[in-house]
């Protein structure tokens, strides 16, 4: 829910410029993607080039650290570099992990929703496909094969159901509390009222908001 890279919003004060500047390093971008992924119930677009860049930078850093160690650089300096690598590694791992856990939880929903499916990376799609196969087989073997004919689907309660009413979906209309980082003006939240986004003001509203501010 950071808004540092917002472009085109008028009134760019010195503070905003500063925020834009510090939030454009890849580490910050990764942190923001990680935070957004962690906070949102549905899976977001995979940041493939960011992940790629981060991994390259980590590798570069690791090489630097190794070089430092060989050159007998001050252990404190080395340890600081190492700590930085560890933190970035954690962000990266955690980011990938959260995504996989979401895929595990909502695999059937993601599979049948084309928009969500395209948000996955190639490897994630492979992971999802295999997970779906595994889970389907497990469900078939444990429950569905033992049920009467018209009740064997893992997506529908019975053949009478018109929609897939057995598929878990993320809850998108839950209320969240968020804080706007800068003045955004009035934003329509739902049909009836619009919320005032004042810098630092707290707001309790449904999740649609974080899409506009993230």
């Amino acid at each position: 829910m950071e808004s540092g890279s917002d472009k085109g919003t008028g009134g760019s004060s010195a503070m905003d410029d500063y925020e834009t500047l510090i939030s454009t390093t890849d580490a910050d971008l990764l942190k923001r993607s990680w935070r957004n992924e962690k906070a949102s119930p549905e899976i977001l677009q995979f940041e493939s080039s960011l992940v790629q860049r981060s991994r390259e930078q980590i590798q570069l850093m690791e090489e630097t650290v190794e070089e430092f160690m060989n050159n007998g650089e001050d252990p404190l300096t080395v340890s600081l570099y190492q700590m930085d690598i560890d933190r970035t590694m954690f962000l990266l791992r955690s980011y990938l992990r959260i995504r996989l856990q979401k895929i595990e939880k909502f695999m059937f929903h993601i599979q049948k929703t084309a928009e969500l499916w395209t948000r996955l990376s190639r490897q994630e799609q492979k992971f999802a496909k295999r997970s779906i196969e595994d889970t389907k087989q497990h469900l078939d073997e444990s429950v569905l094969s033992k049920l009467p004919d018209r009740y064997k689907s893992h997506l529908k309660q019975s053949v009478i159901s018109e929609e897939d009413d057995m598929v878990m979906e993320p809850k998108l209309d839950a209320f969240v509390i968020c804080r706007s980082r800068k003045f955004l003006g009035g934003l329509p939240v739902d049909d009836r009222k619009s919320a005032r986004h004042v810098r630092g003001g707290y707001l309790c509203t449904s999740l649609q908001v974080d899409k506009t501010t993230s």
């Binding site: 560890d86 933190r87 954690f90 990266l92 955690s94 295999r130």
Partner: peptide, 23 residues
């Protein structure tokens, strides 16, 4: 399945479960 994802990416996701404080 999980292992094969990790080896595709060449990254071990089973470590680093909590944010690191000290190396």
């Amino acid at each position: 399945t999980l292992k094969s994802y990790m080896s595709d990416l060449d990254i071990d996701l089973a470590v680093d479960m909590v944010p690191p404080k000290d190396p």
